[in-house]
Design a protein around this nucleic acid. Structure first.
Lengths: 121, 121
DNA sequence: ATGAAAACGACAATCATTTTCATTTCTGGT
DNA sequence: ACCAGAAATGAAAATGATTGTCGTTTTCAT
């Protein structure tokens, strides 16, 4: 395992959830360590191939990464102020599994996010 | 409805499934009609806002669009061959409502899509 | 016909990501 | 320690999708 990959893994752990390549880069350089953005991208690709990180896409198409096995969650986002609540667990996992089973899909992942107006707005 | 939007809708109908902005452009210009790529993008954005087309992302992040029915639904997409199943109704609406209620959010919308490997891949 | 507003599209700008390539760091063998 | 070759690094350029700009064209009500 390359040492750059290890640094990226540690950043993802620190981030605690999803992070884009740029965010990982800022997390590392923000501590004073020096690393190139190119290296981040290469490390993330290796980690993907080794199945140590998952990749998903934001709505704008930007790739976001997270440690595999980390409890994933969903988001409840206020359309006006941007306040975000993380939602863990719940019925949606069962729903996803049931649907996957019904249509004989394997290795099914899901993304689900809620958008509304929060109580303060 | 703008006439460019209509031409884009017809192309999507002709495509029969998902198509990227570039593919829509080729479908139209390939018939000899002239239209700018910029106009395609704008038309697709309008159609999205009017909820006449769905948008998803290919694995490389490119946006792909498709005609969608009136009814609110979700997608089960095969990561390998792109085959898509539309999922109607189900537990997820209740889940969304319950979560919204728990955090006192109003006017909550949701998006939820499943990605996996279909039985033929 | 005419003038305002909307739509159009060529081109440039932006942004994430990949490629290139010169430089630096690691490696094993002597 | 020394040295050559391999691997890793990162700055800069290239790429490709998408968006912004702005001058031109079309639409449409009067």
């Amino acid at each position: 395992m390359k040492k750059s990959a290890i640094r990226v893994l540690q950043s993802l752990q620190q981030a605690g959830g999803f992070a884009s390549a740029q965010e990982v880069h800022q997390l590392i350089t923000g501590k004073g360590d020096r690393i190139g953005l190119t290296t981040i991208y290469r490390a993330l690709q290796s980690l993907q191939e080794e199945k140590l990180v998952d990749v998903l896409r934001r709505e704008d198409g930007e790739a976001i990464y997270r440690l595999c096995g980390e409890a994933h969650h969903h988001h409840l986002v206020c359309k006006k102020c941007g306040r975000t609540v993380e939602i863990y667990g719940g019925a949606i996992e069962k729903w996803a599994d049931a649907v996957a089973d019904e249509y004989s899909f394997r290795e099914v992942e899901h993304s689900a996010d809620l958008f509304g107006t929060c109580s303060q707005c």
